[in-house]
Nucleic acid binder design. Sequence first.
RNA 1: GGUCCCAUCGUCUAACGGUUAGGACAGGUGGUUUUCAAUCACCUAAUCGGGGUUCGAUUCCCCGUGGGACCGCCA
Length: 463
Amino acid sequence: MSLVATRFAPSPTGPLHIGGVRTALFNWLFSKNNKGKFYLRIEDTDKERSKDEYKNQIIQSLKWIGIQHDDKEYIQSQNINKHKEVANELLKKGFAYKCYCSEDEIKEQKEKAKKKGLPFVYNRKWRDSKNLEIPKNVDPVTRFKSKMSGNNLIKDLVQGNVNISNSIIEDFIILRKDRSPTYQLSSVVDDHLMNITHVIRGDDHKINTFKQKQIYEAMNWKMPEFAHIPLIHSESGSKLSKRDKASTINDYIKLGIISDALRNYLLRLGWSHQDKEIFTLDESIKLFNLKGVGKSPSKLDMTRILSLNEHYIKHIDEKELFKLLKIYCKDFKKSIDNPKGHTLIKSMKFLKNKAKTLEDIYQNAQYILNNYLQISPEDLKLLDDPSINILKDFLNQYEKTSIISKESLEKIINGLIDKHKTNFKGVGQPLRIALTGSRFGPGIYDIILSLDKNETIKRLKLV
RNA sequence: GGUCCCAUCGUCUAACGGUUAGGACAGGUGGUUUUCAAUCACCUAAUCGGGGUUCGAUUCCCCGUGGGACCGCCA
């Protein structure tokens, strides 16, 4: 048995889609599960729309989520000559022919078909006609001679047996009028050249398999196995489009989703292993298989992503979490300087408990990151005279305390509760407002312990 | 319109033809709590409809219904 090799073959015509990420993930997991190779192939043969910027973005995105491709990425456009050679071979062997129909002619046929409510199949005008006069002003396209009768069966690793009538497959184009190869051709040639053993791709490619299979047969090449995975739908149930708010991987990164969480979410979308919900990277490699892939499309669920993200935020190492936060702030907020960073590391322990996203942590850390606090009018009202007196008393004792610990603070606060005949809230609330600018936030001990002593004093004196 | 695919709680999904149809997320109720959270306990909630096959159908078959994909000189 040959070494398993899979590939992810995006076209760099836009930022990487969340569905694409899952396809890449499944390919990668499948190959690693089989101790095989995973390749990245950039299908940039559409020169009009392909952009280097997108290519880089795709590579970055895959890297972000932890998918490493073997070898260097394969750039399809660099292999165009090989694709053309194959087209010529097919032509020579009689598996393909030149079609001199003008684009207008084809357009007309399509409109006719549409009017009659029939599916469009090219009428194969040039398929066998040697006696037609070749027009001088038309650059021909090259079409593949698709089978016209009988049935064709694909044994799909996810979909099972799929059977269609050959008559619905038209003589598809393999070389455009400018002689550049189309996807159907390039994809097959490259998969063959790269020794791809398993093609795992979106459901939307299923029909292409019937076209591509015929090229394999004509060239007498070994067919890879195919697995067509159902597509991901938006929350409303329709096809995921670029217009959806969160459709690209960057949208999620911006939201403060961490890679482990998104990876785990995508893994479980359309795939399952018993009742297991949380998978480490190693576990997912060890357990992934195509049998666990379902056949029905699944909807994106933001609350689930958030909940998984919350889980990972709580469970990953705090230093690691801080690193992620730092990168996040640098990319989407503002960079964290060293002294603040130092305070933040100490505070991750409680900051993370309130957070579903890195953005949440960032928000919760505002009282540390900002030098000046903005107290909302509503909170300001809570700082009445008795409260101010409590704060003054607290400041007084706090300044005199040499060792600041939870115990010493407890002592002070309990003393104040007695003295001012109030409860914990009576002391805690004004303190929280004075120190963080808000009556909501982390525990009061956590706040005081996280802030530098001078900073605490400064803030208390300001009110 | 044609071809193909799919169908279990709101969502992601589990269940060799025999289960009180399970888990997770979301939602709800209560406990805990200095706030917001978090946390713990409990609860609600599904086999699309109709026919078969079978002692027995979520599971197999057929028909309907609903959803989706494809129908580019895009990939």
